[in-house]
């Protein structure tokens, strides 16, 4: 094995050389995860909202249910969807296994509980008067919903980032459902896993740099926005 420094230099050179394969992998990763988060976002936030403000029997049970789902390992989610999508499975006819759609489905399933749990926390953290004030102030429920969503926007953004963070760097489900096919379902984490097992570290490190810098930028921007919001808190 070459020295670590030369590998890192190689990795950085690879990133800046505009290596088509590398950037293709990065593109696939972001496209799949962004699609998944956009699909999961709206229903998850609405469920989080309902859990926070609606009063119905079994509400607490449902909250516990979503919190339990948080702890389910990604491989188990991957395995479950694999069985469902495999040729003998209930949705086998859709022929989705080893496609980007299967990966999107897997990532939706992975991010959904986080999005629900964290948006529920966001809504619940608002002042108890906030939702009632929004309802009595606005003329229709949709307007009230938009007002309260704006009020807890940092919490909701935090939920989105946490959900995104979980799926963009996740190997297990992506590998099982996508199959790591070059130019189709090979994304950043599956590529890192494969290159590393081959002993080729530079590409892995290059992709790792992308993931880490993305995490850094997202966290920083969230902190910046929250800092701005905190000034006005009472």
């Amino acid at each position: 094995m070459e020295s670590l420094t030369t590998t890192i230099i190689e990795a950085i050179a690879l990133l800046f050389s505009g290596d088509a394969e590398l950037w293709n992998i990065i593109g696939i990763s972001f496209r799949i995860s962004t699609t998944a988060i956009f699909i999961a976002m709206i229903p998850a936030v609405l469920i989080g909202f309902t859990l926070a403000y609606a009063d119905f029997p079994g509400r607490r049970l449902l909250i516990s249910f979503f919190n339990t789902l948080l702890a389910v390992p990604a491989v188990v989610v991957g395995l479950t969807l694999y069985i469902v999508l495999s040729r003998q499975g209930p949705l086998g006819e859709w022929k989705l296994l080893f496609t980007q759609s299967a990966m999107v489905l897997g990532q939706i399933a992975l991010s959904f509980p986080i999005l629900v749990a964290m948006s529920h926390t966001a809504f619940q953290s608002a002042d108890i008067r906030a939702w009632d004030t929004a309802r009595t102030l606005s003329r229709n429920p949709l307007h009230a919903l938009l007002i309260i969503m704006r009020e807890v926007r940092f919490g909701l953004l935090g939920a989105l980032l946490a959900g995104y963070g979980r799926i963009i760097a996740e190997v297990g489900a992506s590998m099982m459902l996508g199959g790591n096919i070059l130019n189709s379902t090979r994304n950043i984490p599956t590529a890192i896993a494969m290159e590393t097992s081959k002993g080729d570290f530079s590409q892995g490190i290059a992709l790792g740099i992308i993931l880490v810098s993305m995490a850094f930028v997202l966290t920083m921007s969230l902190q910046y926005m929250q800092g701005k919001g905190r000034l006005t808190h009472d």
């Binding site: 008067r129 004030t133 929004a134 102030l137 007002i147 919001g229």
Partner: peptide, 24 residues
Amino acid sequence: MYLYQEPYMFDGSVTRNLEYALGG
């Protein structure tokens, strides 16, 4: 419309809080 004993103000300017009272 119900006005709270201790009214709740939403995050943002006074103008924004007043805007919320206007329907779409």
